[in-house]
Each structure stands twice: as C-alpha cells, then as structure tokens.
Amino acid sequence: MKYFVYILECSDATLYTGITTDLQRRLQEHNSSDKGAKYTKARRPVKLVYSQECADRSSASKKEYEIKHLSRKEKLKLLHK
C-alpha cells in the first residue's frame, strides 16, 4: 500500500502536515467532514500544497516527523523545491 506525506495550507496561512493512503479523500475530510483534524476544522478551507509518496507507513511517519520539526521557513523552502 502506498502512503503519502502531505502539507496543507489553511485559510489562516498556517501549515498542517499529515500522512494518508488517499490524498483526495483526506483533503475532502479536512475540508468538509468530522474526520478532519481538529486543527484544520477551525481553519477551513485548506488546500494541498505538498505531497510525497512513501514506500510504507513507517517511512511516511518518519518523513512526517521530520517535516513537523522544521521551522515554517524551512517548510516553505520544501514547498518550493
């Protein structure tokens, strides 16, 4: 199964990082369902600004952890690669 690490830009210009197996479904959940993260529910609409495919859940989780520990400036640099 493929996993993706993704970054969303929220309506208040903050960034949210997560992992999923289905980017389109997860984006819809963040924007219009109770399954979206608590953080993004208050900051809708959100848009997908970055995604990276990973081989498995473990590598996706590790990448998510790395991204979450970057500064905002470093995250923005990642988006523009």
Rank of each mutant, 00 (worst) to 15 (best):
K62W: 02
Y50H: 04
I67Q: 01
A60E: 10
Y65W: 08
A60M: 11
V46N: 02
S71K: 05
K62R: 12
C54W: 02
Y50M: 01
D56A: 11
S61T: 12
K63I: 11
D56I: 09
S61P: 00
R57L: 11
L48A: 03
I67D: 01
S59E: 14
S59H: 10
L48P: 06
P45Y: 06
E53C: 10
S59R: 13
H69Q: 11
E66I: 08
D56K: 09
K62P: 00
K47H: 06
S58N: 13
S59M: 10
R72P: 02
H69F: 07
S51Y: 15
V49H: 02
S61R: 12
E53F: 06
K73S: 11
H69T: 04
V46F: 00
C54D: 07
K47Y: 03
R44A: 08
K63H: 07
P45W: 05
K68E: 13
K62L: 08
Y50V: 00
A55I: 13
A55T: 13
E66N: 07
L70S: 04
Y50T: 00
S71N: 03
D56L: 09
E66L: 08
R72A: 06
L70D: 01
C54Q: 14
S59L: 11
Y65P: 00
A60Y: 08
E53V: 13
K62I: 07
E66F: 07
A42Y: 12
P45A: 07
S51E: 13
S59I: 14
E53Q: 15
K62M: 05
R72I: 12
H69R: 13
S51K: 12
K62S: 09
I67T: 01
R44Q: 15
P45H: 07
E64W: 04
K63C: 09
Y50N: 01
A60D: 09
E74I: 00
E74K: 13
E53Y: 06
Y65M: 04
E66K: 07
S58M: 10
Y50G: 00
E64R: 11
Y50P: 00
Q52S: 13
A42S: 15
K47I: 03
V46C: 12
Q52V: 05
S58E: 15
A42D: 14
D56H: 15
R72Q: 10
P45G: 05
Y65C: 06
K73V: 08
E64G: 04
S71T: 15
R44I: 05
K63D: 03
P45T: 04
R44L: 12
L70Q: 13
R43E: 05
S71M: 03
R44Y: 09
R57I: 09
H69A: 01
E66H: 07
E64P: 07
R43A: 06
V46K: 00
R43G: 06
A55K: 15
S71Y: 02
A42C: 08
A60N: 11
E74R: 11
L48G: 03
K62F: 03
K73L: 08
D56S: 15
E64T: 06
Y65S: 12
L48W: 03
P45L: 06
K62D: 07
D56C: 15
V49L: 02
R72E: 14
S61F: 07
R57A: 12
S51Q: 14
K62Y: 05
K63E: 14
S58W: 06
L48R: 08
Y65G: 04
L70M: 15
A55C: 06
R44S: 11
K62A: 10
C54S: 12
S51N: 15
Y65T: 11
K73C: 02
R43Q: 10
A42W: 06
P45V: 05
I67E: 01
L48F: 04
